[in-house]
Simulated assay, not measured.
Amino acid sequence: MTDPHVVVASTVAAAQAAATVTPRTVEQIDKFGADVAKSVRLLLFPFQIGGALQDRLERYIDRAIRQVPEERRIEPVESVAYPIVEKLRFQPEHDPITELYIQLLSRAMDRERVGEAHPAFFTVITQMAPDELIFLHDFASRDETLIMSPVGQKIYPDPAWRRARLDKSELSVDIRQEVEDQTFTYEALSQPELFPVYQEHLQHLGLIEYHNQRARHYKQLDLKTRDDSELSIFSMRITHLGRLFLKACAKDISRAVTPAPSAV
């Protein structure tokens, strides 16, 4: 089986060869339809696969191109575009990770937004699980997010456990509601029991971080007595890199997950 790194490394030469198929550059093509068709062919040239997979890949590329206004289209940045197309060959439709690839590919062909298409974001996408994208959107919806975690353990705190923790804090109704609104929406994840894994991985990728400042109402959330099974409460936030990643790769960062009614 061909090493994928070899395939990606050879794409620059392949793209040059494609000039025999598409002799004029994207910027020299006047008609919208011809522009899209030739750009698709240029990107597809190094990745010839059969039948339905080829058709699907062509649709992905077509979508990425059409999201860029015609007057802003440029030839794709090869270091970003070709690795993405190589990955898209086998990405399923209606998959949130597929959408990240398509959005990043679109940025690589947009004169005004090409600077957002940092090559590192491709590597981030290759490592992300769909739940981690939900996780990141949830963090992006707040300045800081409260996390509840068993002291010294990495375990998902279920709703009953979280409610019991807040009951012991004896918060006023208003403050409790504010705390619940600021608490991570664990149940938005398809596998909330993997929350600790996602948290650690997103920290490793540099997309989220512990908050340096104490969370609002922190003192009121402290318990006078606690035991080893008690939930600690701390705050985290999305990093600047995390927000840049969503800006580049999420179709609409403003739709960052709207927390469902809290189960805390």
Results as ranks from 00 to 15, higher is better:
Asp252Ala: 12
Gln213Tyr: 07
Ile74Val: 12
Phe45His: 15
Phe135Lys: 10
Lys154Gly: 00
Ile155Ala: 07
Phe184Pro: 00
Arg72Cys: 09
Glu180Gly: 06
Val197Cys: 06
Leu221Gly: 05
Arg165Lys: 15
Thr225Gln: 11
Glu58Ser: 14
Val85Asp: 02
Leu171His: 06
Ala9Gln: 13
Leu171Val: 00
Glu178Asn: 13
Gln16Ser: 13
Ala18Met: 07
Pro119Tyr: 01
Tyr156Met: 04
Gly115Tyr: 11
Tyr60Asp: 01
Glu200Trp: 11
Asp62Asn: 13
Thr239Trp: 05
Leu244Thr: 10
Gln127Phe: 04
Thr123Phe: 11
Val68Leu: 09
Leu244Pro: 02
Leu207Asn: 07
His204Tyr: 10
Ile147Arg: 01
Arg89His: 00
Arg226His: 11
His94Gly: 08
Ser254Glu: 12
Pro46Gln: 03
Thr22Val: 14
Leu57Gly: 00
Ala117Phe: 03
Asp222Val: 13
Ile155Thr: 14
Gln191Glu: 12
Val68Gly: 04
His118Ser: 14
Phe90Arg: 10
Ala15Ser: 14
Cys249Trp: 01
Leu44Met: 10
Pro192Leu: 05
Val257Pro: 03
Asp181Arg: 14
Leu136Ala: 09
Thr239Met: 08
Thr2Tyr: 11
Gln67Gly: 07
Gln48Ile: 11
Ala81Gln: 02
Ala188Tyr: 00
Ala14Arg: 11
Met236Pro: 02
Glu180Ala: 15
Glu93Asp: 13
Ala129Met: 11
Ile253Val: 14
Asp138Ala: 15
Leu221Tyr: 05
Arg73Tyr: 05
Glu86Thr: 09
Asp222Met: 13
Val77Thr: 11
Ala52Tyr: 12
Ala108Cys: 03
